[in-house]
Nucleic acid binder design. Structure first.
Ligand SMILES: [Zn+2]
Ligand SMILES: [Zn+2]
Ligand SMILES: [Zn+2]
Ligand SMILES: [Zn+2]
Lengths: 132, 132
DNA sequence: TAACACCATGTAATAATATAACATTTGTAA
DNA sequence: TTACAAATGTTATATTATTACATGGTGTTA
């Protein structure tokens, strides 16, 4: 069973914004959007983002410096993330594929190192963009 | 056969620095280190980095905003990169595992999207750090 | 040669992303 | 209620990256 995290005021404001968005949001775009709600400083945004990432409610798309809500309701895989990124329209989706996550979670490299976490970003053209 | 790229002056200076380094280098640390060689501005560094990434001589470690030289001499996999990152000492190694790269290069997601590129970053503790 | 394309360089300014430091407040549990 | 952890508020600053514009080489070709 997933641990309940009661979000604080700022965390909730920022999570709701990201969750409603259909695209990854950048920190300063979030800041701009929540200023009407009394969040005025970058640090307030980054602190909430850090916490939300930590508890797996959102993920950071590293190659884009942007954040999206986790698409896996149970969020068991917050330390094992995979994304599909369209290089044309910049659409990003979280990949939820159990074979892939098992394969990567069990991966052991040549040195015998076993990993506790991974992040995978795939790039290509989405259906829409490919058919153009 | 791999395409030959004759590096320009700035590209060579910056590649040599990264190649000699035993850890990923950040852009402004590179800048600091090459000022004695007449490279004075961030843009000169970023332009060289962009080109070196493009031709596969170096890779960007996205989660660290840092750059390392490609460890695969032939560099056929510059669009299919995987790294091992120690969260304690920050040691980074490029993973060269043909099974892994085949598995990921052939991965097709639920929507039928086929990818042309990926970047995978594994996190954990390296041998040294684990035995501490 | 001259015109052109192409790539690289040089320089200044600025944009975008992220953190440090410090004071205060709030939630929660002993 | 006391004590502690977590969250907030605020200012300033550090770090990472790009825009804009001018200049300089090198090879191609008209
Ligand atoms: Zn997720
Ligand atoms: Zn697309
Ligand atoms: Zn490589
Ligand atoms: Zn280590």
């Amino acid at each position: 069973m997933e641990k309940q995290h009661n979000l604080s005021k700022n965390q909730k404001i920022i999570f709701d914004l990201i969750d409603k968005s259909h695209e990854p949001l950048k920190a300063y775009s979030i800041l701009f959007n929540v200023q009407k709600k009394g969040i005025n400083a970058p640090l307030q945004v980054y602190r909430a983002l850090d916490k939300l990432v930590e508890i797996g409610k959102i993920h950071k798309i590293e190659s884009r410096n942007a954040f999206i809500a986790c698409q896996n309701s149970s969020c068991q895989i917050s330390k094992a993330t995979a994304f599909s990124i369209c290089e044309s329209c910049e659409k990003v989706s979280e990949i939820n594929n159990s074979k892939l996550s098992k394969y990567l979670s069990n991966f052991v490299d040549e040195t015998g190192m076993k990993y506790s976490k991974y992040n995978l970003e795939f790039f290509g053209l989405c259906k829409k963009c490919k058919s153009k």
